[in-house]
Design a protein around this nucleic acid. Structure first.
Length: 474
RNA sequence: GUGAGCGUAGCUCAGUGGCAGAGCAUCGGACUGUGGCUCCGAGGGUCGAGGGUUCAAAUCCCUUCGCUCACCCCA
């Protein structure tokens, strides 16, 4: 008896199939090209890290860390941990309590959590900071400019533009300088990528959320103001007044919008240094002809952000309309045990970029995918050998070639070539073996005008190569 | 975690108490050295799953699972 159960992807993750994968590959290649043109270099990072890294950098109280991470324990490590405890004559199920009471499952879990706890990365800035410290990159000349690409994991309910395994490309600038020109150039880089993707319907939002000098006082002010109107706030906002007043700005409750609009703006309460930095940033954007909108409500969710925050939004997406977001995080590296370091970066959502590129319709999988240059039609065992050799030769020359494994009737073969989207059919049969000339037939797509006859010519192998290479470019 | 909508063939869907259907797609034939068109045919289903009502359930009721969108939050 075989189990007939069908396997399927788990919630929130998905397969990316051809032809869509062509568009993904194009996008990634384009992004790499743009980022490297700004002298960013790729850093390849692990998919999982110590849980503690994310807890410390992203913030233990954030949604990401408190409820969205995929955390697990390496069985070997757990085994070792238990043995080491037993070796000290301790019962692992009781040792943590210091009493003889049996431990509950959750207490045991908490105990094991003290040992190697690993987490699938929910974002990658923490990993970059870790790598920067681990490899002593502060000794490198100039700024350290890195980019990464790959999947991230967050356990959220999926919806349009949001997945549990999603893909990000991010760029980070680390070093001793926090000059606003760095921030502006990073944003400029994003706009170049948007142009390369032929996207028009996007908006750049910028803000400054101050630094440890000025933000605490502002947060307190905000809390005071919110308490005055607390009877008009919803449950979510009410809770945030105490936990994290800045988050009230994220509320989408219609009744609260008027209240939010009247709240004091953080940019009116920046210290001199932060104000200067924000003013300079906007000047730097202006001199690059990048249009921006000051969005005082833009407060990013991760604890490590300070001063500059920015976001690119698109009208083509649903509720999850952020294509990319980022900001400055000057204290992060030091907080993780590294040298005092300035830093800024962004992450862009590949899933969302692809969505918007498809909606814009300027670039498609069909237009960037690799075409099938030739389909080889062969007849009889003698022509098969010649066909195999021809296929190898054409492929060596960089052409994409398909050849049926079994002999097909000519009509069938051409029909298949057509449906596969081949640009040419090359016929190898008795006649061609005798003359040394291959019959090449130009194929037209199913949608093209049918009255055009496929022009057919007889060419030697050398001529054939030339012909296929020449007509491949359009 | 919460709410709403939706689950019938590979895809898009019709069928609202009486034999499980259509279009597209796939495969074969008409058509053994020349494609798209046309025509003919075939395969493909636990009607998401489980239970209940009924002579009879894809259809009505209950439960459950899944998907989608939205909230929360973020890329």
């Amino acid at each position: 008896m075989t189990d007939k159960r069908k396997f399927h992807t788990v919630r929130g993750v998905r397969d990316i199939l051809p032809p869509d994968s062509s568009l993904w590959n194009w996008f990634e290649a384009t992004a790499r090209d743009v980022l490297e043109s700004f002298n960013f270099r790729e850093i390849r990072l692990p998919i999982f890290e110590e849980t503690e890294l994310f807890a410390r950098s992203v913030g233990a109280e954030t949604d990401i860390v408190s409820k969205e991470m995929y955390t697990f324990h390496d069985p070997l490590d757990v085994d070792q941990a238990i043995k080491s405890v037993l070796g000290h004559g301790l019962d692992p199920t009781r040792a943590h309590l210091g009493s003889s009471a049996p431990a509950s499952a959750s207490q045991i879990w908490d105990f094991l959590n003290k040992f190697e706890s690993l987490t699938l990365r929910p974002e990658a800035t923490a990993s970059v900071a870790r790598a920067y410290i681990e490899h002593g990159m502060q000794t490198q000349p100039g700024l350290v400019k890195l980019y990464y690409a790959g999947p991230m994991f967050r356990r959220e309910r999926p919806q349009k533009g949001r997945y549990r395994q999603f893909y990000q490309i991010g760029a980070e600038v680390l070093g001793t300088s926090d000059h606003p020109a760095i921030d502006a150039e990073l944003i400029e880089m994003l706009t170049v990528l948007l142009e390369r993707c032929k996207l028009g319907n996007w908006t750049l939002l910028v803000n400054s959320i101050g630094d440890p000098n000025c933000r605490p006082a502002y947060v307190e002010l905000l809390r005071e103001e919110l308490r005055k109107v607390k009877d008009r706030l919803g449950q979510d906002s009410l809770r945030r007044v105490e936990t994290n007043p800045l988050r009230v700005f994220d509320s989408k409750v219609p009744e609260e919008q008027a209240i939010i609009a009247n709240l004091p703006k953080i940019t009116d309460h920046l210290c001199d240094a932060c104000r200067q930095h924000f003013d300079d940033l906007r000047r730097q954007l202006d001199l690059r002809s990048i249009s921006w909108t000051h969005e005082p409500r833009l407060v990013r969710g991760l604890d490590y952000y300070m001063r500059t925050t920015f976001e690119i939004t698109s009208t083509h997406l649903g509720a999850q309309n952020a294509l990319a977001g980022g900001g400055r995080y000057d204290g992060l590296v030091e907080m993780l045990g590294g040298p005092p370091t300035k830093g800024i970066g962004f992450a862009l959502g590949e899933d969302r970029f692809i969505e918007v590129i498809q909606a814009a319709g300027q670039i498609s999988a069909a237009s960037v995918g690799r075409p099938l240059d030739a389909f080889i039609v062969w007849m009889g065992s003698e022509s098969y050998l010649a066909a195999v050799r021809l296929a190898r030769r054409l492929r060596q020359e960089g052409l994409c070639v398909e050849m049926p494994a079994q002999e097909l009737k000519v009509g069938k073969a051409l029909n298949l070539a057509d449906r596969l989207g081949a640009r040419h059919a090359v016929i190898v049969g008795e006649e061609e073996l005798l003359t040394g000339q291959f019959s090449v037939k130009r194929l037209f797509g199913r949608r093209e005008i049918r009255t055009l006859p496929g022009d057919q010519k007889k060419l030697s192998e050398a001529e054939l190569l030339e012909y296929l290479r020449g007509s491949g470019k359009h």
